[in-house]
């Protein structure tokens, strides 16, 4: 039972972070389908730092450097979306898809290149971080991560930032009616850049949390297995509101965790369902949720539409 709680919290943190990222981006008016790729890059940044640091490093230093690295790589990667979607008015779905494909391909190439450079007999795309990962755990042996606490803090910060500050309200105005926002002197381009970069920051961190969630190595050729898209479903389910996104993330995290630990529950093993069913569960649930909640969608009105000063 405690195992289920551990994994639920971990996966919920991942989904919450990434969905919050999507939330910022979409409130500024840019659809971020590329969250999956951003996660991969954030994970790559964090994993590379973990690979470099020695296992005896102070836990606080490990956490700080990994978190900063993943946020930074996520943010830099999200610039690809920002430049294309904001400056060049490109099709945001297409750019996002390209970013997802590029994320996995580029991360695989980078990790393989590093691995073969250090040891020519190791052409794998796997980074292992068995010992150093322990720095993230609050109690040794239990999968409660400091990153979960950080996620809660970031949730509170997001709520305050989005609803209680001038910046947040301006950001949301740009996603609802950019021309109106521009007419009162808000720089729509800057705001959209801010939205996308924040989503890169949160998405990158989400990637780090995901690859440290109960595993001690990561195969980068697998990307992040559709988690970026699950996060988008969480965001839609949460109605683009951080508080509700948090609840949605908990629900989704629970179902994802179930596929990891269902064997520990006698009544579930007695059902004798193949493990594939549990693997499918999060995706099926999110599809069902989308079916129920998409009809009266509260999406920002101007999302996905490139900002054109001239149109009113």
């Amino acid at each position: 039972m405690i195992l289920l709680l551990q994994y639920t919290l971990l996966f919920a943190s991942v989904l919450l972070l990434v969905a919050l990222g999507g939330c910022f981006s979409e409130h500024s008016g840019v659809i971020n389908i590329g969250l999956e790729g951003i996660m991969v890059f954030g994970a790559l940044g964090g994993a590379l730092v973990m690979r470099v640091l020695s296992p005896t490093t102070n836990a606080f230093v490990v956490i700080l450097s990994c978190v900063c690295a993943s946020m930074l790589t996520g943010m830099v990667y999200s610039l690809l979306l920002a430049v294309a979607a904001i400056n060049f008015k490109a099709d945001q779905t297409l750019v996002g898809t390209a970013m997802n494909l590029l994320g996995t391909a580029a991360a695989t190439v980078i990790v393989k290149a590093i691995n073969t450079a250090t040891n020519p007999d190791n052409p794998s795309a796997t980074i292992a971080y068995v010992d150093i990962r322990k720095a993230f755990l609050i109690w040794p042996g239990k999968e409660f991560s400091w990153l979960t606490l950080l996620t809660v803090v970031l949730l509170v910060v997001s709520i305050v930032l989005l609803y209680k500050t001038k910046f947040g309200l301006r950001l949301m105005a740009c996603g609802e009616h950019p021309q109106a926002a521009a007419s009162v002197g808000i720089n729509v381009f800057k705001m959209r850049y801010a939205g996308v970069l924040i989503s890169g920051l949160l998405g990158g961190l989400g990637g780090l949390v995901y690859i440290t969630a109960g595993v001690s190595e990561w195969k980068f050729e697998n990307g992040v297995a559709g988690f970026g898209f699950l996060a988008l479903a969480v965001m839609i389910f949460g109605g683009w509101k951080p508080q509700r996104i948090a609840l949605a993330a908990l629900l989704f995290g629970f179902f994802r965790a179930l596929s990891n630990v269902y064997t520990g529950f006698p009544f579930l093993t007695r059902l004798n369902l193949p493990s594939t069913v549990y693997n499918m569960l999060p995706y099926i649930i999110s599809l069902v949720v989308l079916v129920i909640f998409s009809k009266n969608s509260a999406a920002p009105k101007a999302e996905g539409i490139p900002y054109d000063k001239g149109s009113r």
Binding site: L80, L94, T108, V109, K112, P123, A125
Partner: peptide
């Protein structure tokens, strides 16, 4: 073998990304 075969995937991903600029 020193070059990962995924480079080809990377190239096609960059090509898709660039296709987003076709309109421009």
């Amino acid at each position: 073998k020193i070059y990962p075969a995924e480079i080809a995937g990377l190239i096609s991903a960059v090509i898709i990304y660039m296709c987003a600029f076709v309109l421009f």
